[in-house]
Simulated assay, not measured.
Amino acid sequence: MLTDAIHRFVRGPGGIEVVTFCADHPGAAASGARVFYERLGFTPGEATDPGPEGGSRQIYRLAVG
């Protein structure tokens, strides 16, 4: 499972942050990235700078420890 791989390569305490589409972005549903990160245990955080096309982005975090 991917979460096992994450914990094998990332030693805590610490965390992993990723940036993905905000829920209002058309690519959010098409890519499935938000659901993917949530299934891995990431939690949604604050909005961040727009992507290169100007679309909204959001930070997701996973605590490792």
Rank of each mutant, 00 (worst) to 15 (best):
G15V: 09
G15Q: 11
G15M: 08
I16R: 00
I16N: 04
I16Q: 02
E17F: 14
E17P: 05
V18I: 14
V18E: 02
V18P: 01
V18N: 04
V18K: 01
V19Y: 01
V19Q: 05
V19I: 06
V19G: 02
V19L: 04
V19D: 03
T20C: 14
T20I: 05
T20S: 10
F21E: 03
F21W: 07
F21R: 01
F21H: 00
F21P: 06
F21C: 04
F21A: 05
C22H: 08
C22N: 14
A23E: 15
A23N: 13
A23Q: 15
A23D: 15
A23R: 14
D24C: 14
D24N: 13
D24Q: 13
D24P: 09
P26K: 01
P26C: 08
G27Q: 14
A28K: 07
A28P: 08
A28Y: 11
A28N: 15
A29Y: 11
A29Q: 13
A29K: 15
A29T: 14
A30L: 15
A30G: 12
A30H: 08
A30I: 13
A30T: 15
S31C: 05
G32M: 03
G32Y: 02
G32N: 13
G32T: 07
G32S: 14
G32W: 00
G32E: 05
G32P: 11
A33R: 04
A33N: 09
A33M: 15
A33K: 08
A33W: 09
A33I: 08
R34W: 07
R34Q: 10
V35K: 15
V35M: 11
V35C: 11
F36N: 04
F36K: 03
F36Q: 01
F36T: 01
Y37Q: 01
Y37A: 01
Y37K: 06
Y37C: 02
Y37S: 03
Y37T: 02
E38A: 12
E38N: 04
E38I: 00
E38F: 10
E38V: 06
E38Y: 11
R39Q: 13
R39C: 05
R39V: 03
R39P: 07
R39L: 08
L40P: 05
L40F: 02
G41E: 00
G41V: 02
F42A: 02
F42Q: 05
F42D: 03
T43C: 12
T43V: 14
P44N: 14
P44D: 03
P44S: 11
G45K: 10
G45Y: 04
E46P: 10
E46F: 08
A47P: 07
A47E: 14
A47D: 10
A47W: 11
A47M: 10
T48M: 06
T48Y: 00
T48D: 01
T48Q: 00
T48L: 00
D49H: 04
D49K: 03
D49Y: 01
P50E: 06
P50W: 00
P50Y: 00
P50S: 06
P50I: 01
G51V: 03
G51W: 03
P52G: 13
P52W: 07
P52S: 10
P52T: 09
P52M: 11
P52L: 10
P52A: 14
E53H: 07
E53K: 06
E53F: 10
G54I: 06
G54F: 08
G54C: 06
G54N: 07
G55D: 12
G55I: 00
G55H: 09
S56F: 09
